[in-house]
Structures are given as structure tokens and as C-alpha cells.
């Protein structure tokens, strides 16, 4: 007993701490190598500025308030677009997963629209909405719609039919069956959709802001390109990476909270 205790205890102790750090080793190492390469002149500053220069540019923009404003504008567009597109996708996923009629009516149409790359609509969207907020929200919503729709639909269709039969036997009403069996059963799949959608959300937004905007991170990067401020361009790209990671972590936290019953999310 004492031998087992002395072996297993430090392992249990060390694992989570190492886990938290390990994922940052590679990004940090890349930045360190990059810094060294820039300082030694191996990478010309015109091609890629040193991380320290990027950080300095970031600090200046932070002080002027420009950075925060642009991040906020992009964040706002991303969230609103995500909420709109996600809710519509979720609603269609539910409807088509639960009702044969609804699936027959709309699924074919949706599958056709899905196969049009939504970024190909940018010219049309600019003609419709100009370079207004609604253009960006429309594109983000459209991009987010499909992963959430498809995964919600898939989640609902693959709920264990034995559990649904069990629910019926035990006299659950339709509402109760949905709340107690179908929705929790579909949730893991819905989360897969959300995580895909978060990636598409940033991609769409950045492309839209790069092409047609007067504020936001994409706009900031394009302005910097005009003035040959390569450090700001690189800064924008790094911020995208961090925001993407942040969105992913947020969905993971949500997953952990709502899927604590799932063996994959129980503390190991």
C-alpha cells in the first residue's frame, strides 16, 4: 500500500501542471528562434520583424487605444454574427433532426447552398450591403450556420434509439423526451459544430475586414500594409492566432461544464 502511494502520488501531482505548460513550449520556442534569427540578421527585418519589434508596435497601438478599439470591433462582429448564424443553424438542425417533413422540405436546399464557398459571395454581399456592418455580420452568420446546422442534425439523428424507446416506455412527453434524452444526447456533436464554427467565424471575419471595412483587425492589417508597417501586419496575425485559441479554450470550458457526465471529460 505504502509503495503504491509513494509512486502514484507524485504522478497525480505533476500531470496537470506539466500539461498546462507543455502546450506552450512549441509556440514559445518558435518565438525564441525567430527573435534570435532576426537579431542575428538571418531573417531580414523587411521580411519579418523581430518579435520584440512586434511587441513594441503592439504597445504603441495599445497606448493610442487603436488596438483595443479594433479588437473590440472585430470581437463584436464575430460574436453577433456567430449568435445569429449559430441560432439559425441550431434551429434548422433541431427542426430537420426532429421532423421528417422539415428535413424533406429544406435539407436539399441547404446542402446546395452549403457547397457554395460563402466567401465567394463577398462581391454580391458588398453590392447588397456596401461595406457596412451588416455585410460582415451576414458573411459570418452564413459561415457559422453550416457547421452548427450539420452537427446539430447529426447529433440528433444519432441519439441512441434504445434510449428514446426507454423514454417513451417511461411515459415521457415529447418536450420531456427532448429535454432529458435527445438534447443531452446531441450535445457532444453540437459542440463539435461550435468548435468548427468558431474557426470559420474568425476566417470569414478577417477576410471580410481585409476586403471591405473601415475598422477592425483586418482593416488595421490592411492599413499597415499600405504604409509598409510590417510589424503591425505581423501583430494582427498573432492576435488572430491568440483570439482563435481563446475561442477554442472557451468552448472547451463550456464542454467540460456541460459534458461532465461524458467519460472523455471526467478528470483523469
Amino acid at each position: 500500500m505504502s509503495l503504491i502511494d509513494s509512486v502514484s502520488l507524485p504522478r497525480n501531482f505533476r500531470l496537470p501542471r506539466v500539461d498546462g505548460l507543455v502546450q506552450w513550449i512549441v509556440p514559445l520556442a518558435i518565438i525564441a528562434i525567430w527573435q534570435v534569427a532576426s537579431v542575428t540578421g538571418f531573417v531580414p527585418v523587411r521580411v519579418l520583424p523581430a518579435p520584440s519589434d512586434v511587441a513594441l508596435a503592439g504597445w504603441k497601438l495599445l497606448l493610442s487605444g487603436e488596438l483595443i478599439r479594433n479588437i473590440w470591433v472585430s470581437f463584436w462582429r464575430a460574436s453577433i454574427g456567430f449568435l445569429i448564424g449559430g441560432s439559425i443553424g441550431f434551429a434548422f438542425g433541431l427542426a430537420n433532426g426532429l421532423s421528417q417533413l422539415s428535413a424533406k422540405l429544406t435539407d436539399t436546399t441547404l446542402q446546395m447552398v452549403r457547397n457554395v464557398p460563402h466567401l465567394a459571395l463577398i462581391p454580391l454581399v458588398i453590392l447588397w450591403f456596401g461595406i457596412d456592418e451588416s455585410a460582415k455580420l451576414f458573411l459570418v452568420a452564413l459561415g457559422v450556420f453550416f457547421p452548427i446546422y450539420l452537427n446539430t442534425l447529426h447529433g440528433i439523428r444519432t441519439v441512441d434509439p434504445q434510449l428514446i424507446e426507454m423514454g417513451r416506455i417511461y411515459g415521457m412527453s415529447d418536450g420531456e423526451l427532448f429535454r432529458r434524452v435527445i438534447f443531452p444526447g446531441a450535445l457532444p456533436s453540437i459542440f463539435v459544430g461550435i468548435r468548427f464554427a468558431l474557426g470559420i467565424m474568425w476566417l470569414t471575419l478577417i477576410v471580410a475586414e481585409t476586403i471591405a471595412a473601415s475598422s477592425g483587425l483586418g482593416y488595421m492589417a490592411m492599413q499597415a500594409r499600405e504604409f509598409m508597417l510590417i510589424d503591425v501586419v505581423v501583430l494582427s496575425i498573432l492576435i488572430y492566432a491568440l483570439l482563435g485559441k481563446l475561442a477554442d479554450s472557451a468552448s472547451r470550458v463550456l464542454e467540460r461544464l456541460t459534458l461532465s457526465w461524458h467519460p472523455a471529460f471526467q478528470k483523469r
Binding site: Q162, L163, M166, Y170, G171, M172, R180, P184, G185, W261
Partner: peptide, 21 residues
């Protein structure tokens, strides 16, 4: 049934409560 058919997302007690109809 042969399979327990418990709701994996409900605690044991809530699974039993399902049986109350």
C-alpha cells in the same frame, strides 16, 4: 432490457426517478 439503457448524462438517482413516469 438486456442493455441497462441508463441516461449517461443523468446521475444514478435521476435515472431512477425517470421510472416514476
Amino acid at each position: 432490457f438486456q442493455e441497462p439503457r441508463l441516461l449517461p448524462w443523468a446521475r444514478v438517482l435521476s435515472n431512477v426517478e425517470v421510472g416514476l413516469g
